[in-house]
């Protein structure tokens, strides 16, 4: 038998993967809702866009928190730096995409 410290530790994990199952169900729900919204034409374009984008944002949270251990540290007691780094990443994602649309919106007039 391998020495004790090499035995994978089973801590933190319950016997049934509840977290993953709930995450999966949520992600399915969050896919079906926007699909339904779009296909059934229940909303006018602007609220529809906002609605489906909102679902997408919730989906990110599902992946990050239910699957990716987004806020878990490495056990060293230091902060989970990835939370900060990736949050900055999301911020710049919105800035670059949003600002590019704003900046380039002139071209729709030029065309």
């Amino acid at each position: 038998m391998a020495s004790q410290h090499q035995t994978p530790t089973a801590h933190h994990e319950p016997s049934f993967p509840w977290q993953y199952v709930i995450g999966y169900v949520l992600s399915l729900v969050l896919t079906v809702i926007p699909l339904w919204l779009v296909l059934d034409h229940v909303l006018t374009p602007t609220p529809l866009t906002i609605g489906i984008l909102f679902c997408a944002v919730l989906q990110i949270f599902v992946q990050l928190f239910m699957f990716m251990h987004f806020t878990h540290g490495d056990g060293s007691g230091e902060p989970a730096y990835q939370t900060v780094v990736l949050s900055i990443g999301f911020f710049f994602t919105v800035v670059f995409a949003g600002a590019s649309i704003w900046i380039m919106s002139f071209s729709s007039q030029v065309q």
Binding site: P17, Y20, V21, G23, Y24, S27, L28, T31, M66, F67
Partner: peptide, 10 residues
């Protein structure tokens, strides 16, 4: 893809 993300998590 959503399902595969789930199975990967498992």
């Amino acid at each position: 893809l959503l399902t595969s993300s789930f199975t990967g998590g498992l």
